[in-house]
């Protein structure tokens, strides 16, 4: 039976996704290792990690497509995969890219997916499909066969399928994968728009700047393990900023800074960066000038999520995938 409004009120928990000890093992390989994830309602939650770190496996478990080896997962306050019939109609999902029936038109693809939803009213099916097409800007191409769509159009049609009904949670797995910068911008602005309507968005990505631009919260995974999670601002604040000196005399600057106890010095072009010392920064600048270093710029740069990631894992982030 479709969930009634009574059910819905009871499910209004603070966290839309909660997992505890969620584990998926393939033979000896642990794809997901004791994951404890908490996604607060109303957040735009970035799920970050290099390709192959277990993000998609986690999402498949959350959506009831694969059975966890152990551990529990709750989505919208109900256990998954057991309560999938109640949970999934309230969730829109884009998992590992769009999958379409190439011989059907874009519109017919949406009608097909909508007919699989137990709570979707067949009487409003066409209207809702048109509205979803309009929302992702595909109205003009709605009659074209899906196999003639570009990757960006397919991605947008996949998003339209996730938007056929009003959703409480959108799970978007790498929604900008394979898109050109223009397409990426469009998707991101759509995500922001949806989030401002109150939909919780769970967005997986291997692109740090994407998470930083769009998300309010983030979790970081590598090799099946969750390294950290929390509000993006806090994660970035967790890493200290870097002292940056811009100067043509990089060699002298580095020497002076080292004498002043600045650690982890890196020279790149006309920039010398390092960990800020505990002393007054103005004194550091004065010392540089005194030593005859011509300073063009001096300051502390705010830490980015990437710095936070490097600080957490002790390794670079595989941005290119």
């Amino acid at each position: 039976m479709p969930s009634t409004s009574g059910d819905r009120a009871g499910d209004r928990t603070a966290d839309v996704i909660e997992t505890s000890g969620l584990t998926k093992r393939y033979g000896k390989h642990l794809a997901v290792d004791h994951l404890d994830l908490t996604v607060p309602r109303g957040s735009v939650f970035g799920f970050l990690g290099p390709n192959g770190s277990g993000k998609t496996t986690t999402i498949r478990m959350l959506m009831g497509l694969i059975e966890p080896t152990s551990g529990r997962a709750r989505v919208l306050g109900r256990p998954m995969p057991r309560d999938g019939r109640r949970v999934l109609p309230r969730v829109g999902a884009l998992i590992e890219g769009p999958a379409l029936y190439g011989f059907l038109s874009g519109r017919d693809n949406l009608l097909r997916y909508d007919s699989a939803d137990p709570t979707a009213d067949p009487r409003t099916r066409r209207t809702r499909a048109e509205a979803a097409l309009d929302r992702v800007g595909l109205t003009a191409a709605a009659g074209k066969k899906a196999k003639a769509y570009s990757l960006g159009m397919k991605q947008r049609l996949g998003l339209a399928a996730a938007l056929l009904q009003p959703r409480e949670l959108l799970v978007l797995d790498e929604p900008t994968n394979g898109l050109d910068p223009q397409g990426m911008r469009e998707i991101r602005s759509l995500v922001r728009e949806l989030a401002s309507d109150g939909t919780t968005v769970f967005l997986s990505s291997h692109l740090l700047d994407e998470i930083e631009q769009v998300c309010s919260h983030a979790a970081v995974m590598t090799r099946g393990r969750l390294i950290t999670q929390g509000p993006v601002a806090e994660l970035a604040a967790g890493a200290r900023g870097r002292l940056v000196v811009t100067t043509p005399d990089t060699g002298d600057a580095a020497r002076v800074l080292k004498e002043l106890g600045v650690a982890d010095l890196v020279i790149a072009d006309d920039r010398v960066t390092g960990e800020p010392p505990g002393t007054e920064l103005a004194d550091v600048n004065a010392a540089l000038v005194e030593a005859g270093v011509r300073v063009r710029g001096f300051g502390v740069e705010r830490a980015s999520l990437e710095d936070a990631f490097v600080a957490l894992t002790g390794e670079g982030f595989d941005v290119a995938g």
Partner: peptide, 10 residues
Amino acid sequence: GTLRYLLVAP
């Protein structure tokens, strides 16, 4: 890949 979308429809 359409099977996964049918199943999450659900």
